[in-house]
Amino acid sequence: MTKLHILVVEDEENIALNIADYFEPKGHVLDFAINGEQGLEMALAHPYDVVLLDVMLPKMDGFTVCDTIRRKSTRQVPILMLTARDTADEKISGFHAGADDYLTKPFSLGELEVRCIALSRRHLLNIDHVLDLGDLKIDRSAQKIWREGKEITLKKIGYDIMDLLIAAHPKTVSRSEIIQKIWSDDPTESDALRSHIYQLRTALDKPFSTPIIKTVHGVGFALDISEKNKRKNS
């Protein structure tokens, strides 16, 4: 079953609680924001699978949040807007702001989940299978990675961690997010993550002149792609 990391930007507590009560027992991980400014900050800071965004919010309305995410985010995160008004003008405004889908309150929680899963899958299909990032290249369909043209042999978990770091670049991916994404069905200890990061560095950093995996102390990990490498591959 598809398990998603979802940001819910909703100021009505009962709606947020109903979504949590339905989604979390199914294994989805939810973060919550209660106003537009907080939602925008969280959406830009973390690589969510889907953002559920209410239209009427304190401090910043959903249209402005959506438009700002589209302008400032380095990732094309799917956004599903929630509205209490089923009017054509409001839906048009949402789509113009960059929303991918719309759902009118009150809604079926089952339908909401199905739409979130569909948006996430559609988003993955639209991602280029082969990505170039500095001297790093990843083929997502074949699950292969190269650095400076040399293929790097990684175990499945190592590849999955690198896929997360590449998708989030230049942002940092927190330790807790990596653990949730990789081991959601069977949470692991931080020592296991430390071991896999060590193996990644042995394969991706040690054979080369400059390291590419950066520890952001107290937060998590990121890719350190030098400007020189970016220019070389542009």
Rank of each mutant, 00 (worst) to 15 (best):
Ser73Gly: 03
Thr172Asp: 12
Phe32Lys: 08
Thr188Asp: 05
Lys228Ala: 13
Lys105Ala: 02
Asp224Trp: 07
Gly94Pro: 11
Pro187Val: 00
Asp49Tyr: 02
Phe95Ser: 06
Glu113Thr: 01
Asp191Arg: 12
Pro211Asn: 07
Gly98Thr: 09
Lys91Gly: 04
Phe32Asn: 07
Lys26Gln: 15
Met81Ala: 03
Ala16Ser: 15
Asp100Pro: 06
Phe95Trp: 06
Val130Tyr: 03
Ser174Val: 09
Glu24Cys: 12
Gly94Val: 12
Ser190His: 13
Met56Gly: 00
Glu13Val: 10
Gly62Asp: 07
Gly220Ser: 14
Lys105Ile: 01
Glu10Phe: 10
Asp132Gln: 14
Glu24Tyr: 07
Gln76Leu: 11
Leu82Trp: 00
Gly218Phe: 12
Asn14Arg: 11
Asp160Ser: 15
Lys144Tyr: 09
Ile152Pro: 12
Thr104Ser: 08
Ile152Gly: 10
Ala99Trp: 02
Pro207Met: 06
Gly220Trp: 06
Ile34Asn: 09
Leu53Lys: 02
Val51Arg: 02
Ala97Pro: 03
Val65Ala: 10
His196Ser: 10
Ile79Phe: 01
Thr202Leu: 07
Ala33Lys: 09
Glu148Asp: 11
Thr2Asn: 05
Val130Arg: 08
Ser184Trp: 08
Ala97Arg: 04
Gly110Met: 07
Leu125Thr: 12
His123Met: 04
Ser209Tyr: 05
Val130Pro: 03
Ala20Cys: 11
Val114Pro: 01
Asp21Ala: 14
Ala142Lys: 08
Trp146Thr: 05
Leu80Ala: 04
Lys3Phe: 04
